[in-house]
Design a protein around this nucleic acid. Structure first.
Lengths: 201, 201
DNA sequence: GCATTAATGTTAACAAAGTTAACATAAGAA
DNA sequence: TTCTTATGTTAACTTTGTTAACATTAATGC
């Protein structure tokens, strides 16, 4: 009565990996521990994944997908171009705050190399495409001059890097959002700040 | 003729650790390898540091110090408040690009916990104080109202998170600065971008 | 149905890493 | 000199990633 072929090891491993990741982050995820928790031999995961990076890649892919979905949902629901940029930034930070470990996984250095996992690269590209399309979609149909296109691109980079910086510093605890304020409006305030304006109150 | 007490093990370890970190990042730094490279037994580092975190903390402290120095040098040299904010952001990103591994060490999750290494916490606080003072110093002597002070603080956070986001995305390869442009002016362009302005060319 | 092959498990081993304990030696203080 | 402390060493223990060798089940071809 060998317990061979219980049938769904791959999915169970992935789910447990998700659980561990959420609680302890990518570093705390050990293949052997994962196998033990799943009730399977310590070498079994290697039959379903390309080692540790393989599992991390699989988890990262689904994280990228959820990330992209949430961003797209926000982008689609908003008419005004300026508002969309801002709300996208807020959604970006919200995802990071709600799923800090996933956010770290997809942006940190424990993420497996994109060029070794084509599906991971695709998932990453897709997420950033969503961002960029949403930020530059104001005159997608209009014919833009080259400089206009460049400006739109630059604006996308600016919006992205701002949201990213806020997200990083907040989940690292370097910036503590005020408790008496909604996170979203706090983020919007930072995004809107115009550094070129004079400081006069 | 035991090779006991060669005298300077602690500093040599630190220097080698720096070398390894620069080349391979915090993850590639192994205590045992470090000991072997230093020509000392594999347990010797424990006589001088509180394990691996202890060494990382020591390296992170000096990284923070250099970081703060470079920022302060820029801040002191610039008269205009607006220009100072911008140049500080550029210097922030420049440090990250020139010393990506150090930047990752002081901001990433392989950094030892601040509350376990008081000197590390001090070094971190000092670096951020430099930033904040520089950004809010426009009317340091003038008496500000509460809301003015809050605005200045918010502006500091905005400037910091922008520089941080750009730095992160650039050293992670997600943003590739244009080759035909100076890195500094590229960064300035991103920092100056006003997301609330209409997109008209 | 049966034999062969592929997929999926298992156990056992290896190397590398962090860490600690037990012991050895050098330097400095009493 | 003697005792204490600082500094090194060796040897172990544990955990982890990974692979090889082997076992069993499922699937496929005849």
């Amino acid at each position: 009565m060998g317990k061979y072929h219980h049938g769904d090891v791959r999915n169970v491993l992935l789910e447990k990996a998700e659980t561990i990741l959420t609680k302890e982050g990518p570093t705390g995820l050990s293949l052997r521990r994962l196998a033990r928790m799943t009730g399977v031999s310590e070498a079994a995961p290697y039959r379903h994944f390309d080692g540790k990076d393989g599992i991390l890649a699989a988890v990262a892919i689904s994280a990228f997908e959820r990330f992209a979905e949430q961003l797209e949902a926000v982008a689609e629901a908003i008419e005004s171009h300026e508002e969309r940029i801002m709300k996208l930034g807020a959604a970006y930070v919200a995802f990071a705050v709600e799923h800090p470990q996933h956010f770290r996984l997809i942006f940190g250095r424990e993420r497996p190399p994109l060029d070794q996992y084509p599906e991971l690269r695709d998932a990453a590209d897709n997420a950033f495409d969503v961002l960029q399309r949403a930020v530059t979609s104001v005159d997608r149909k209009a014919d833009m001059t080259l400089t206009e296109a460049a400006t739109a691109y630059n604006r996308a980079l600016a919006a992205w890097s701002r949201a990213h910086g806020i997200a990083m510093l907040v989940i690292d605890g370097m910036i503590v959002p005020p408790a008496d304020q909604d996170l979203g409006s706090f983020v919007l305030g930072l995004l809107e700040e115009d550094l070129t304006a004079p400081t006069g109150a």
